Simulated scan of single mutants.
Amino acid sequence: MDIMRGQGGIQMLLTAEQEAQQIVSSARNMKLARLKHAKDEAEQEAAAYRSSLEKEYERKVSETSGCSGSNMKRLEEETETKISSLSDATSNIRSDVVDMLLKHVTTVHV
Rank of each mutant, 00 (worst) to 15 (best):
A46D: 00
N71I: 08
S65N: 09
G69T: 15
A33P: 03
V105P: 09
R50E: 01
R5N: 01
E19G: 09
M30P: 03
I23N: 09
Y49E: 11
E17L: 04
Y57L: 03
I10P: 01
S95P: 02
E77C: 13
E43T: 01
A16D: 05
E56C: 10
N29V: 05
T15E: 08
V97F: 05
E41Y: 02
G9D: 09
T15C: 00
D88W: 06
S84C: 03
G6F: 14
G8D: 07
L53G: 09
Q44C: 09
A47D: 04
E17M: 05
D2W: 12
S65M: 15
S52W: 08
K60W: 14
C67F: 12
S85M: 08
S65I: 12
I23W: 12
L35T: 05
H37W: 11
E80C: 03
L13N: 07
T81V: 00
H37C: 13
E80R: 09
M72R: 02
T64I: 14
V97P: 15
V98W: 08
A38E: 05
L53N: 09
S51T: 00
E63M: 15
A47L: 02
E45T: 02
R28I: 15
Q21V: 10
G9T: 07
S84R: 04
I23T: 15
Y57T: 12
Q18C: 05
Q22V: 07
Y49D: 15
V108N: 08
E17D: 03
E45F: 13
H104L: 11
A42Y: 00
K82E: 15
K31A: 07
E45A: 07
E80Q: 05
E56L: 03
K31G: 03
H109K: 14
E56D: 10
L86Y: 08
E54Q: 11
E56A: 04
K73M: 14
M30G: 06
V24C: 08
Q11R: 05
Q11F: 08
L86G: 03
K103P: 02
D96S: 03
R50Y: 15
N92H: 12
D2T: 09
V98M: 07
V108A: 02
K31D: 02
E63D: 07
K36V: 14
N92I: 00
S84I: 04
K82F: 09
Q11A: 11
A33Q: 06
T64S: 15
A89D: 13
Q21C: 06
V24S: 02
A42S: 11
M12D: 12
S70A: 13
C67L: 13
S62P: 00
L13S: 01
R59I: 04
E78D: 13
Y57H: 13
L102V: 08
S85Q: 02
L35Q: 10
E76N: 06
R94D: 10
I10K: 01
G66N: 14
A20L: 11
A48M: 04
E43G: 03
L102W: 09
L102N: 15
C67I: 14
E54C: 06
L101V: 14
G9V: 02
L35S: 10
S87N: 14
Q22I: 12
G66E: 12
E43W: 05
E17P: 03
H37S: 03
V110S: 12
T107H: 01
N71R: 09
A46M: 04
